[in-house]
Amino acid sequence: MAIKVGDEAPDFTFTLKNGSPASLKSLRQQRKAVVLYFYPKDDTPGCTAQACSFRDSYEAFSDAGAEVIGVSSDDSQSHDSFASKHRLPFSLVSDADGSLRKRYGVPRSFLGLMPGRVTYVIDRDGIVQHVFDSQLQATRHISEALDVLKRLSIS
C-alpha cells in the first residue's frame, strides 16, 4: 500500500553522512522536514543527474529546514563511492532487501523491471505533504520538493 499525502511517514533508522545514527523520528524531534527520495541505482545517468541536482540545491533545502535523504538498493560501499565521486552532501541509505521501499509502497516501473523513482516531502510533524512519482523526470523531483517546502514555510 503506497504512502500518500496526509499519511504519517513510516519511521526508519539510517546513518547520516557524518557516520552518526539517525532516524526519521530523531529528525522530527530536531524540527526538520525531510525530503526522502527513492531512486533506482547509483551512477546511472538519470540517478546521477537527480543526485547532482539535489546537491546543487542542497543549500536551499537546508535553508528551508529540510534534510535530504536518498534511498536505493545499492550497498553502502556503492553509496560511499557515488557520494564521494559527485560530492553529495546528504545521506544515502542502502535498502538492499527492499524493505524500506516496500514500507513506502514505492512502485516498480518499466514493466516491473526497474525500481521506481519517488520523492516524499515529510513535514516537521512526520506527515507526508507531497509525493512525486516520475521515472523520466529525474531532476523535476528537486523543484517539486522545493516548491512544497517554500509553501510549508509560508503557512
Rank of each mutant, 00 (worst) to 15 (best):
P107G: 15
R101S: 15
R103Q: 10
G98R: 02
D95T: 01
V93A: 00
S94N: 05
D75Q: 04
F90Q: 00
S109W: 13
Y104Q: 10
S72Q: 09
E59H: 05
E67P: 04
L88G: 00
E67I: 05
F61K: 00
S62V: 04
S99W: 03
D74T: 01
D80I: 12
S109L: 11
V93S: 01
A83P: 03
K85T: 02
R108G: 08
L100A: 12
R87I: 14
S84V: 14
L88Y: 06
L92N: 03
R101V: 06
F90V: 06
S109K: 15
L88I: 07
Q77C: 10
L92I: 02
S81F: 11
V106P: 15
G70P: 10
P107Y: 09
S81E: 14
L88V: 04
R108T: 13
R87T: 14
H79A: 08
S109M: 10
G65I: 02
F90I: 02
K102M: 08
A60R: 02
I69K: 07
D75E: 08
G98Y: 02
D63K: 06
H79S: 07
K85G: 03
H86K: 08
V71A: 08
F82Y: 07
A64P: 00
E67D: 09
A64Y: 01
S99Y: 06
S73A: 11
S76N: 08
F90M: 02
A60N: 06
S91L: 01
S76I: 14
V68A: 14
D95F: 01
S62F: 05
R103T: 13
E67V: 13
A64D: 03
F61N: 00
S94A: 12
S76F: 06
V93Q: 01
K102E: 08
D80T: 14
S81C: 11
S81H: 15
S62K: 05
A66Q: 03
E67H: 09
K102H: 15
A64K: 02
K85N: 05
E59D: 04
R87C: 11
A96N: 10
D80R: 15
D75T: 10
S109P: 09
S81N: 14
K102Q: 11
Q77F: 05
S78L: 07
D75L: 11
D63E: 04
Y104A: 09
Q77T: 06
Y58A: 00
H86F: 08
V106Y: 08
S76L: 11
G98N: 08
G105K: 13
A83E: 13
Q77S: 11
E67L: 08
E59L: 00
S84Y: 12
S78H: 09
D80Q: 12
V71L: 05
R108V: 06
S91N: 03
R103D: 11
L88S: 02
L100Q: 13
P89A: 01
V106G: 15
Y58T: 00
I69C: 07
A83V: 15
G105S: 10
